[in-house]
Write a protein that binds this DNA or RNA. Sequence first.
DNA 1: GTTGAGCGTT
Length: 249
Amino acid sequence: MDATKTVYVGSIPFDQTEEQVMEIAKSIGPVVDMKLLFDPLTGKSKGYAFVKYTDHETAASAVRNLNNFALGNRMLKCSFSSDNSISSEFGVENGVAGSSGSYEASDSNSLPALPPGMQLFANQTPPQAVSGALSTLDQASAYQLIAEAKQMAKTNPQLTRTLLEQCPQLAHALVETCLLLNMVTPDIIQMCLNKKMTDIDQLSVDHVELLKQVNSLTEAETNSLPEDKRKVVIQIRDEIKKGSYGTIY
DNA sequence: GTTGAGCGTT
């Protein structure tokens, strides 16, 4: 057992099965090992479990998110497992995001260690925390953030995908930053999420007009555009052809 | 109702 990756979960209602506890544990991240303890004589749950995660940061996330989690008529208790057999080299982490360590990737095809998560305030939702963090960002930094994200997406789309999958709050932050900078509008975001729009009414009149204009550009007009803009026009036309925007005419 | 088995003894 590894005390840096393993959490103690206590105050589990006695009627919870191992499967049910596993589901809750997995809501935090991949689980390597889980043991709900039972009294060998009575067969009843002892109301506590040990959950081993793949890494320390996921375990830390469990401590933050599972402690005081309401389950049945009880509040779960979650902390790093105390392990008397191994002297703990890590103090218990009370922690807010990381100051220590470098996050440089060893090579361009693997992600560096990502910074740890942060403690949410009471009643604060993750999106609120992201918005709060972004509110401290000045406009120039915001533009730089988007530019760097775009650069990364172009030079290494696979790694970018991995990063955003592992760190959905970053994806959220990037989208929100684009909105703050007026690079996109909410209905465009909506469209990307839906991929297919069956209801054209959800597009603003301006957008419909714009799509019509793009779609009706002549070959000569299209060819006179700079390379990058021409690509976008062609892409939009393809989308219209595929019906991604519904029927605009 | 709050930190991991059991055997069997360094």
